[in-house]
Amino acid sequence: MNAPLRVDSLRKSFGDTEVVAGLSFELRRGECFGLLGPNGAGKTTTLRCCLGLTGADSGAISLVGEPVPERAREARMKVGVVPQFDNLDPDFTVAENLLVYARYFGLRDAEVRARIPELLEFAGLVGRDNASLRSLSGGMKRRLTLVRALVNDPELLVLDEPTTGLDPQARHLIWERLKRLIAGGKTILLTTHFMDEAERLCDRLAVMDAGKIIAIGSPRELIAAHIEPQVVEIFGEDAPGWAARHAALFSQRSEVSGETVFCYLHDARPLLAHLDAQQGLRYMHRPANLEDVFLKLTGRELRD
């Protein structure tokens, strides 16, 4: 069986800037694959290339078995896309949004009407068929965008930052729905810069920076491969001074960011005992997570 998406040595430049610099990865059927990276890492350009919305300079893409961009339109027949910013039709009702979008796939109105109750149930919008878009909250619109991407029962669902701008309740509901889709066997490609989102949803993920994949694997594998298992965060005015004198004695690696010191280590006990005896320093001890990996791999500088 073909991979739902295969990208081989993809390159794309805008002027002198190489935005995608030799990217290769492959999705397995039924997995949720995350593309992570700071702003400007090339995630959105990669997605646009994969959907055939912009031409690559070189490389090969196969999307649901079709070569892209040559047969991008045929490929998109079998793909659902949730864009980063909602582009629902504000002049249409909830049901019309689904109906009209389905027409773009050549689906018959009768066929789609029969599926609307099921789609609205999934979106948590039961009985809102004739509601105007203005009456929906941001979370409701996002869920409607999600089910709109399901009207053609796609083989692959592509989500570009699906929960950016949502409140925690709305995010959790989206995650729950995505997990249902994954459990139902859908293949998902998502981009995000929320590490908790990636850690919760993704079977595998690729960390991108400057147009390249710099690490790929399951969240656990990435944490195990790239970072010490324990983290102690130390806060307070004296923290940087403390770090200069003591950090290297207790931790394998440490970083100072403002008045916070991050100590990465295998065994936290000696450090914790030492800190308990110090005045004026507060600390938090936790297991290493994906965000630590991400910051280690892509650095702490702002990417604007």
Binding site: L51, R73, R76, P83, N87, D89, Y101, Y104, F105, G106
Partner: peptide, 14 residues
Amino acid sequence: VQKTWEALLNAPLS
């Protein structure tokens, strides 16, 4: 403004 075209382009339209 509404990005309707973007939605159309994500569907199988050129």
